[in-house]
Design a protein around this nucleic acid. Sequence first.
RNA 1: GGGGAAGUGGCGGAAUGGCAGACGCAGCCGCCUCAAAAGCGGCCGGGUAUCACCCAUGAGGGUUCGAGUCCCUCCUUCCCCACCA
Length: 822
Amino acid sequence: MAETYDYRTAERKWQQRWDEEGIYRAREDEDRPKYYALEMLPYPSGDLHVGHAKNYTLGDAVARMMRMLGYNVLHPMGWDAFGLPAENAAIQRRADPNVWTRENIANMQRQVRLMGTSYDWSREIATCDPRYYRWNQWIFLRLYERGLAYKREAPVNWCPNDQTVLANEQVIDGRCWRCDHVVERRNLSQWFLKITAYADRLLADLEKLRGWPERTRTMQRNWIGRSEGVQLSFAVETSEERISVFTTRADTIFGATYLAVAPEHAVVEQIVTKKHQNAVRDFAESLKSRSELERTSLMEKQGVFTGAYAVNPLSNERIPIWVTNYVLAEYGTGAVMGVPAHDERDFDFARKHGLPVAQVIVVPGSDIEAPLQQPYTDEGRLIASGDFTGMTSMRARKAITDRLVALGIGEAQVNYRFRDWLVSRQRYWGTPIPIIYCEQCGEVPVPDNALPVLLPQNVPITGEGSPLARDPAFTNTTCPKCGGAAKRESDTMDTFFESSWYYLRYLDPHNDQQPWDPAKAKHWMAVDQYIGGSEHAVLHLLYSRFFYKFFHDEGWVSESDEPFTRLFHQGMVLYNGEKMSKSRGNVVGIDQTAEKNGVDAMRLFLLYVTPPEDTSDWTDEGISGRVRFVNRVWRACEPFFDRARSVDVRALPQVSASEEKALVRAVHVAAKSAIDETLSRRFHYNATIARLDEYVNALTALEQSAPDSAAVLYAVHALPLVIAPFAPHIAEELWARMGHTSSVHLERYLEPSEQALAVDEITLVVQVNGKIRARLQAAPGISEDQAFELAMQQSAVQAQLDGKQIRKRIYVADKLLNLVAG
RNA sequence: GGGGAAGUGGCGGAAUGGCAGACGCAGCCGCCUCAAAAGCGGCCGGGUAUCACCCAUGAGGGUUCGAGUCCCUCCUUCCCCACCA
């Protein structure tokens, strides 16, 4: 009676063994090339589902492949453990955020292990651990010393539901990224990180990131939003005030027919005339009470006249100053020159409010006297522009900028769309910001030797206001400078702070002298392959690049100033075509799936169902195909354990029959596919697993017809080696059954042999005028003339050539012969 | 409105410019069985005159001896950004 494969027992046994023997532990080793494989660290929300599993399975297959290809692989895992869900659990069911998070970590760690992943658990981190967030505070202080962390009052995004501020990157379509509540604008004093100081490098270095998806680079480019232009000021007729505007189209300055100012702009109060005061105030008030979402979705351009006029510094024309809803207070100077003839928004606004449209650029091929029916936003040759008339737009921009500089009222300027990163949060479950406020000394940083500033336990969390601010035991302290009574900062850090540098802590997770040893960073960085969802294309990936450039400037990391050499976004997993969610109750959990199908089948299915970057659909029928595959692998090997033992898998078997050669070839084709997909970084293991199917199908077939063949014994013994990165448990079990005492995962991968991959016979396609008329079996390397002779003997070819002359012969060696006739 | 990616059987998908549909799922037929499950074998884009030929990779054009693949136009879907001056 044949023994059947018991995946439950085998999986448990091998996971335990790997753990005990620490076979995935990484050590610095100068003799082998290093490879840092990393998946984005998860938030410990409670349970893993097959969506997580896809991410970790892909990363694990890559790490295992690289390990078997001779690389010294670092593959760590940890927990992004601070954040709002823990606090919400505290509010809803009085759970302690610390206990809640620890329990979730324990459960998710169990599930990640259950998947048979090859992580080095000795490097595990949790960001809510004081031994970790201590270094958050340390890094914050270094940023502070460099002037890269600062506090200021600014209009910020406030989520009334989560009772905290949000970074611009966390506001999606005017809504909170976590709870989807409409975000409000508030003027608050908050901590910022000066990411804009790195704007140019963050933008320019995107060019270096050839191993990143193009669309992610484009998204970052657009998010940074660099634009070159000139900032110039207009005199106000009845006031000492001047109004600065930013424009990328200085060449259109003679076409300015009004100035448009944001309602929040400080100059408005100074210049507005008595007569217009009420209208302007009402207008500003009507906008203030609206959320940013309402304001921007309102698209319709509105505005009121201030009664004041400005003077165009080059044409000396007098133009009215309007307050409008379409000028953003936070971008540029909060004011723009309105050029209706050459800007779509200005055109809309001017037409609505009866402002003149002054054309200053020639529209090619049209009568310049005819009034413009639509704005002309392309470049061209200038008219009606004083000294600059006749110049091209490009030349005029330069000349006009030079003139404005000479007049002392303008300068060339670069503006960025993105803003500094708002990092303070009015929440409990995060890293305390290590700053103390003293009445005598002002803002004082906590000294390094007083770190960490511990997050206090047992603080009441109600969901209203900042919990730390209401805890006097925490806020009351003494000033590190003068020793007098002082107050601690009660805000905590955005959790993206922790995740911006965690990949460095893995290198040196137990260091209590510094966040990491720069020598270790020199050895292991940069991350060779980073794998995670595309939802972090801007947020986490931009922040991390910023941090890493700062670390590089400080000399804490060497080599590159980019942390992630190659990036891969895996697609999400649906269930029966629908998004999985707790509320729908259609989440496919890891525990049930592993129990029902086995982990190897689950891993194989996730890699097989689609290319990894595509959205995959989990179906119960689909996984059954891989369960069948695992069982087929077992049945193909089980009767041959004893005989296959003595076969040397590192030497090709002596075989002559074509079926035997075909089987040996199938083994090597599969191995080559696995290697090619890994080294090309395409990771299309769906194709590799199809080759594994063919391998096992060929093996099963030959076992029927020639069970004693050397090819069968070779293919049986090689199978665990070839499937090891994808189905690690059954691979290990088979390997052990064939007499090996050390792990298959520490073996070198099967090296594809040219000889084994070679074919005895090729099929040569014969075309006449591009249509297939015959197929010839021939030896590889057949000459064109020989092929032609054989082709001409084919009746189907003769029939097509009947009465025609061959004008041309196209020959692709070992593939095709095309006869062009007419 | 701008930018990006993609359209191939009932489904997921495969195919360095060279045999379209590998491999699998579902389905159908058969073997095994008292029966079922499992397993094994076969069929499985459409048409017709079925050991053969014709049509077929969203639609239309182009380049080429040859196009699913490259170029242009259009249609559709998905994603991202969206008053950034």
